[in-house]
Design a binder for these strands. Structure first.
Length: 859
RNA sequence: GCCGAAGUGGCGGAAUGGCAGACGCGACGGUCUCAAACACCGUUGAGGGCAACCUCGUGCGAGUUCGAAUCUCGCCUUCGGCACCA
């Protein structure tokens, strides 16, 4: 059965087997070294000949849990950088390390390692890994926040804020362990809230702490005009700021046996219209007047309740789910609108930090007050009702705000529309000095004190004579000592370092003590992108000219878990820097994109302690960096994230193998394909050439849009389709045509930002084969779509009857609706589906994309 | 609990008012091989039918629309954040 042609086929296949295989291990390090040598990713900040593009990715915390999640964040961002370079832009793409923080201190305590050594060795390892992904970071701009050359400027900025009245010190409560001092939330464990190290019951303790006055910017922060944030982030920030309009109303305490009365009790309410429905008052257990107002016979119970509330988290206290608790303190308040005396309670659902720390309770019109009143048998008095519903009994708080509601049981105000009544009540109170319109925010000032070692020391000295004294600028930085007893007991570790602690007062030279708190690490991350522009500048935090030239940052990418805290703190910090005259801008970034989070295979957050991390080194050794980059982008939408699963890497690797084959061996033939080497049935070479151009330019059109929207998964899918088309023509006569060359060239250019190594290798070989001088693919211009190649002369129109697909027809592009209807109604399948009934109407949807024929439905 | 997001084949996902399941994984069948691996070709939502085709189908329940995975309302589940993890 062996024929001559079989034998020659076999010889050809033998030749195929000797074609060099795609070997990432041999090409990736080579190109990484070459790019570094060429300085491909080093940005000339002073180059004004090209449009500037500042691309910022959230700098990583060097946790030691180095895992695939870091690649998931960074490699698509690198593709964005490369895509913009191919558009002729001067891209600045820096990187740094968020090097201060609790994990270093925890590791130090657990394993007796120095936090600096632990952090620096993690950074060294991360630098190496970030290089293996082929990312084009500008390492010359690197910033490490734990370096004195960075944190010096945290101190300097803090002093400017202090001078401007934007920083202040006040008492506030922390979670406190008698043995281990202040605890972070993650160091408080279990429902009984015990200390992670010693198991002691966690208490609250009031400490003097530093704050930044960010509530000053609440209204400005609500304004997102001119910046492009994802809608969910805007909503979350808006809710976090939580602006409420209403009134502050002054109640007074009633005289009683134990107490003369007459103190002011201010409450904030969003519903001044319900003032007549206030049947009791609730203070936060921490309210300053609780002590004075409590009746002697209530003291024991009140004290116990206050102690219990201290142990609860805010999340527990605010839960509307659980049963309301509280105690009466044996005092009464006088309602300014009608002189009525109402009992005063304390309850944990009222927070000291929001509003005035006290509420007037209107159970008829507030769910929480209703639940409380039910439990304690308090009066529920309806004061707002829709017409005709005045006498309908309430079976829950009536909150709905509909037009036409009027006040009832509200003295002279009864009968007024609720809105107007509320305004009148407030205005009348204001005239008597017993109230005023007011706005309250949920946003609180930013507590920046931490009783920790591994952070920026505050540049403050406490002098017995002069009180709080700033460290003079010329004495900055206040250096963090290298070793302290960070595992000892009691307050902040720096209090145990005598050499650090004891200092001469800058004013009188007398013995004084340094501030021993360090700064929240969110301070570090609140301005680091400005420092990237002049990381070594010795005489100031920022280079004003570069900052004004290069910022606001064009695009910021990072995790959605930062939606409120970091992304809001940094906006606040920018406004503070502006207000002390350092910068001009109002917002730090023009556009923010939040990518999703990659989880372990168990669906939990990846961490070493859970043992669910994926080490990128292993994957790179097996598949190469390009495959991993591409796989991470192909997994799903970038803003979604999801559990890690290596299933499917093979498919992406095969795709790169196909690209390799197309690029290196276009004329070879595969065994296994009966049609290999011949054009598709019925297609001439001319047809094939047109089809190739069409495919390449259609792909370019779609892929360009996908890159712009960060839709990497569909971008790669489209490149796979193009590669499949090219693969179909492999070994045919078409491979000798310019259309083939153009399509291959476009495929490589479109793939280059995502898979930079393999495309550089194939690109180089093609240049060499054509005897052209070498030039990096990454310095090429992005190709342009040829509209004539993309145009179609026919299109396929789906035909529906009553919304159900019944047929499809291919028609010329320019056909009129009337002609189309004639064709459609003549189709056999359509006539069968109509069953002889007359169309009621025919809908031409979306510019002729679809036809829907509507007929009367049988019953 | 509150705020935000997501639920689509065996799996990751595509389609954001107009052909549900692009692309890929897995599975099954085939080519190549002494064999295996690699590579390549084909099939693959479920049910029915020899077939042409038909019916069902996007977490659950209602609604709007000529037409709904997509919009609206009410639930359920999962994930992120809730101010000292970063």
């Amino acid at each position: 059965m062996t024929t001559t042609s079989d034998r020659s086929d076999r010889a050809e296949r033998g030749a195929r087997a000797r074609i060099e295989r795609y070997d990432p291990a041999s090409i990736e390090p080579k190109w990484q070294a070459k790019w570094e040598e060429l300085g491909l990713h080093k940005t000339d900040l002073d180059d004004s000949t090209r449009p500037r593009y500042y691309l910022l990715t959230m700098y990583p915390y060097p946790s030691g849990d180095i895992h695939i999640g870091h690649w998931y964040i960074k490699t698509p961002t690198d593709a964005i950088a490369r895509f913009h370079r191919m558009h002729g832009e001067n891209v600045f793409f820096p990187i740094g390390f968020d090097a201060f923080g609790l994990p270093a201190e925890n590791a130090a305590i657990k394993n007796n390692i120095n936090p600096r050594d632990w952090t620096m060795s993690n950074i060294a390892n991360m630098r190496r890994q970030l290089r293996t992904m082929g990312a084009t970071f500008d390492w010359s701009a690197e910033v490490v926040t734990a370096d004195p050359s960075y944190y010096k400027w945290n101190q300097w900025l803090f002093l400017r804020f202090l001078e401007a009245g934007l920083a202040y010190r006040t008492k506030s409560a922390v979670d406190w362990c008698p043995n281990d001092g202040t605890l972070a939330r993650e160091q408080v464990e279990g429902v009984d809230r015990h200390c992670w190290r010693c198991g002691a019951r966690v208490e609250k303790r009031e400490l003097d702490q530093w704050y930044l006055r960010v509530t000053k910017y609440a209204d400005e922060l609500l304004d997102f005009s001119g910046i492009d944030f994802p809608e969910p982030i805007r909503t979350q920030q808006t809710n976090w700021i939580g602006r409420s309009e209403g009134g502050e109303i002054v109640f007074t305490t009633a005289p009683s046996d134990h107490h003369a009365g007459g103190e002011e009790l201010r409450v904030f309410t969003t519903r001044p219209d319900t003032l007549f429905g206030a049947t009791f008052m609730v203070l936060a257990p921490e309210h300053p007047l609780v002590e004075t107002l409590t009746a002697p016979d209530r003291r024991a119970e009140v004290k116990a309740y206050v102690a219990q509330a201290e142990r609860e988290t805010e999340i527990e206290r605010l839960s509307t789910d659980r049963e309301k608790t509280g105690v009466a303190i044996g005092a009464e308040a006088i309602n300014p609108v009608n002189g009525e005396r109402i009992p005063i309670f304390i309850a944990d659902y009222v927070l000291a930090g929001y509003g005035t720390g006290a509420i007037m309770a209107v159970p008829a019109h507030d769910e929480r007050d209703y639940a409380f009143a039910e439990k304690f048998g308090l009066e529920i008095r309806r004061v707002v009702a829709a017409p005709g519903e005045e006498d309908i009994a309430l079976d829950g708080a009536y909150i709905a705000h509909t037009a036409g509601e009027r006040l009832v049981n509200s003295g002279d105000y009864s009968g007024l529309p609720a809105d107007e009544g509320g305004r009148r009540i407030l205005a009348d109170l204001e005239a008597r000095g017993a109230g005023r319109a007011a706005v309250t925010y949920r946003l609180r000032d930013w507590l920046i004190s931490r009783q920790r070692y591994w952070g920026t020391p505050f540049p403050i000295i406490h002098c017995p004579t002069h009180g709080i004294v700033p460290v003079p600028d010329e004495d900055l930085p206040v250096l963090l000592p290298d070793t302290v007893d960070y595992a000892g007991s009691g307050v902040s570790p720096l209090t145990r370092d005598e050499a650090f602690l004891n200092v001469a007062c800058p004013i009188d030279g007398e013995p004084a003590k340094r501030e021993t708190d360090t700064m929240d690490t969110f301070i570090d991350s609140a301005w680091y992108w400005y420092r990237y522009l002049s990381p070594n500048k010795p005489d100031g935090p920022i280079d004003y000219d570069q900052v004004e030239t290069w910022t606001p940052v064009e695009q910021y990418t990072g995790g959605a878990e930062h939606a409120v805290m970091h992304l809001l703190y940094a906006r606040e910090f920018t406004k503070m820097m502006r207000d002390v005259g350092l910068i001009q801008q109002n917002e730090p970034w023009k556009k923010v994109f939040n990518q999703g989070q990659i989880l372990g295979m168990d669906g939990e957050r990846m961490s070493k302690s859970r043992g669910n991390t994926q080490d990128p080194d292993e994957l790179v050794a097996k598949y190469g960096a390009d495959t991993i980059r591409l796989f991470l982008m192909f997994m799903g939408p970038w803003d979604q994230g999801g559990p890690w699963s290596p299933t499917g890497i093979g498919g992406v690797h095969r795709f790169l193998n196909r690209v390799w084959t197309i690029g290196i061996d276009p004329t070879g033939l595969e065994p296994g394909d009966p049609e290999a080497g011949s054009l598709p049935a019925g297609q001439s070479e001319a047809d094939a050439r047109t089809a190739l151009r069409h495919a390449a330019h259609r792909t370019l059109q779609a892929v360009t849009v996908d890159y712009g929207n960060f839709h990497f998964n569909t971008m790669i899918a489209k490149l796979m389709e193009l590669a499949n088309v090219l693969m179909r023509y492999r070994g045919t006569s078409v491979t000798a045509t310019p259309e083939w060359d153009e399509a291959v060239r476009m495929l490589l250019l479109m793939l280059a930002p995502a898979a930079p190594h393999i495309t550089e290798e194939i690109w180089s070989r093609r240049l060499e084969a054509a005897s052209e001088p070498w030039a990096s693919i990454h310095t090429q211009r992005w190709p342009e779509v040829d509209p004539t190649a993309v145009a179609e002369d026919t299109r396929e129109v789906p035909i529906q009857v009553n919304g159900k697909l019944r047929d499809k027809v291919t028609v010329p592009v320019g056909i009129s609706e009337i002609e189309l209807e004639q064709i459609v109604l003549a189709r056999d399948k359509v006539r069968a589906a109509l069953g002889g009934k007359e169309p009621l109407k025919i809908i031409h949807a979306g510019g002729g994309r679809l036809v829907n024929i509507v007929v009367r439905q049988d019953a």
